[in-house]
Design a protein around this nucleic acid. Structure first.
Lengths: 214, 214
DNA sequence: AACCGCCTACCCAGTAGTGGGTAGGCGCAG
DNA sequence: CTGCGCCTACCCACTACTGGGTAGGCGGTT
């Protein structure tokens, strides 16, 4: 890659450890320049507007504003900036969602740091990069793992469910009938192919619906 | 700190990102030398036996063998090696357990990398290091958060519960009556002050009872 | 206009979990 | 040997959740 013009990168992750670590690793590559880091999506957006990076690496699972929701904001403010999603958890459900929202890359947690460098190079060159497990999901689209996982409302219900609330609590929180919450819950289960409440909560936490992770 | 003799450190974490990142950060400090890394507790033990580090940084929540269980093994094989627990999740429940098992330090996830360096320096100097939130737990020991949370059997039940099993499933798995499982579940709830199943599962996953994180 | 997906809401019968007891057996500490 | 904590197991009434329906309203697409 061209050594005259380093690739400007902004990193966004709510784990300071990952942030500092990633920066340290990337700074050993002369053709990559970390121009900014942030612990929140909105802070990251501010940083990116100031520094105009070629690539933004953003964690998909963050408090307040999730990485997926942030994609659109980045696309509006920085149309030429390319976004790579970083998933520390197993959020395979959201790969297609990320792509649809305009992400140029998606890297799963079980990736080496070398692969991250490759990903940055690739998307900076105008192509897309998806780590091994991800491309499978995009190509296969098996009926057991539907591409459009949950609706907004179902997402809300699952989030509250995962935070330890009962159907009744959720109904109150969202100003709904308890019956409606039950319907949502039923549909979620059907969509995800999960039968027990416990499994549902596991799924929610594994996929970053959690509120307590910040 | 003495620059002639760098502090030898082994890092153990099942996230390659954290591992590589931490290594990269620590290698910028001349008085710290990362002599090995591992993604599993047992692999880490092998590495440590070969390299004889002064300090081992180990993630508390890992598949197969948890960080806490690993402490004892390290203490046997490497009595002079000092162990710092690294908790990416909020495992405050296990702080006292770690200390009792012989850990010299405990760092919560919301820590900066600078603080990790300080922790390594401190425990290498023969003292103990606990990040801010941790020392509170050790000193306070509030009645609402008892030091001995769960019995062995309750632990078993909670683990299966968190993996998505119903009372009936658990009863079969442990060769118990369903009624007994319900009794255990009741006692767990009472002890932890959690009323809903959802909350129980959250607790289990947050505190590293999870089986699926590998 | 017709259709579709989503959100809302209810019915029903059945099953699962809750929260309050009690209680015997077992092993260990005083 | 007495007491204590733990594991086991059950009773009961009550509440919550399940899994199968149906269905009206709303907004966007064709």
């Amino acid at each position: 890659m061209s050594e005259a013009k380093p690739i400007k990168v902004v990193l966004i992750d709510n784990h300071p450890l990952v942030l500092d670590g990633l920066r340290a690793v990337l700074e050993t590559f002369p053709h990559i320049e970390v121009v900014g880091t942030a612990g929140l999506a909105l802070t990251g957006l501010e940083v990116a507007v100031k520094t105009n990076p070629a690539v933004v690496l953003i964690d998909i699972n963050m408090p307040k504003l999730s990485g997926i929701d942030a994609i659109e904001l980045f696309k509006v403010k920085l149309p030429h900036c390319r976004i790579v999603m970083l998933s520390m958890h197993d959020s395979r459900e959201y790969i297609s969602a990320s792509v649809l929202h305009g992400a140029s890359g998606y890297i799963l947690k079980d990736v080496s740091t070398d692969e991250i460098v490759t990903a940055i190079e690739t998307v900076a060159a105008g192509r897309t990069y998806f780590s091994s497990g991800v491309s499978d999901v995009l190509l296969e689209r098996r009926p057991s793992e539907p591409a459009n996982p949950l609706t907004t409302r179902e997402h809300d219900v699952l989030m509250l469910l995962a935070s330890g609330k009962s159907n009744r609590d959720i109904a109150q929180s969202l100003s709904l009938s308890e019956a409606t919450v039950e319907t949502h819950r039923k549909n979620i289960k059907k969509k995800l192919g999960i039968s027990t409440t416990a499994g549902l909560i596991r799924y929610a936490i594994d996929n970053g619906f959690s509120l307590s992770d910040g």
